[in-house]
């Protein structure tokens, strides 16, 4: 009979402490200061880089940091939000302390969203609300058709996030495993990396599955056990 698990395994907090920094220490350093300073000189930061590189994690880490200081913040994943009315989603956000907009690429070709974000940008700047935007491309390469928005997107401090190499992916995976109370040996981590997708999103999903399975079956993470679990992926 399968062992049932308590609902305590799922939720990884997305904070700065569980972000594997690797070669992105300048960005992390900057963002930590961005969220801490009472009167930051810069109110808008843009992050870009390929999928699975940790942009969403950093955005949410900023939300977490300000949230812990009792500030109201919002995280807007446009991939999910773009189906809704842009003006309704953006209304009133200038009353918060920080707005994080993820996946800005999703509004390429969507004139209504572009205009709504342009107005939101202006309101946030006027109210001096912190704004953090992430996308897969640099602001000038986004193919945003509203020039007013495009020039604004390029006006802040822009950082490109560096990719993790395989060695760092192993370390990042091990760090995540450790936070969940699992020990992921080098050999096992390397096995996962060489046999499955190396995108960090997918790797994290694998880790979730392994976490659940190891709790159910009360097994340590060994290569045979990983093989057994992952053949169903």
């Amino acid at each position: 009979m399968t062992q049932l698990t308590l609902g305590v395994t799922l939720n990884d907090l997305t904070t700065f402490t569980n972000y594997y920094v690797a070669e992105n220490n300048e960005v992390v350093n900057y963002l930590q200061a961005f969220c801490q300073v009472q009167e930051p000189c810069e109110h808008y930061v843009y992050l870009w880089g390929e999928a699975g590189i940790g942009k969403s994690h950093l955005l949410q880490a900023c939300c977490h940091q300000l949230g812990e200081n009792k500030q109201a913040v919002a995280y807007l994943p446009l991939r999910e939000y773009k189906q809704f009315d842009a003006n309704e989603v953006c209304a009133g956000l200038e009353n918060l302390a920080l707005v994080c907009i993820d996946d800005i690429d999703c509004i390429v070709g969507n004139a209504v969203w572009q205009e709504a974000l342009f107005h939101l940008f202006n309101r946030l700047q006027a109210a001096k609300v912190l704004l953090l935007i992430a996308g897969s491309k640099a602001p000038t390469n986004l193919e945003i058709t509203l020039p007013d928005l495009q020039s604004r997107l390029a006006s802040g401090v822009t950082f490109q996030l560096n990719k993790l190499n395989d060695a760092n992916k192993v370390k990042a995976l091990q760090m995540r495993a450790k936070l969940r109370g699992m020990n992921l040996a080098d050999a096992v981590a390397n096995y996962i990396l060489t046999h499955h997708s190396r995108n960090m999103h997918d790797l994290t999903a694998i880790l979730n599955k392994l976490d659940q399975a190891s709790l159910q079956e009360q097994r340590l993470l060994t290569i045979p056990f990983v093989k057994q679990v992952l053949e169903y992926i």
Binding site: T14, C63, A74, Y75, L93
Partner: peptide
């Protein structure tokens, strides 16, 4: 989840008024 929490719960502001807790949503 962290994402749900940051998306929906963190934008709320709490305020006490006449012995009631008001949760204020931005929109």
């Amino acid at each position: 989840s962290s994402q749900q929490f940051n998306t929906w719960i963190r934008p709320l502001q709490a305020e006490l008024r006449q012995q009631c807790l008001y949760l204020l949503a931005p929109n």
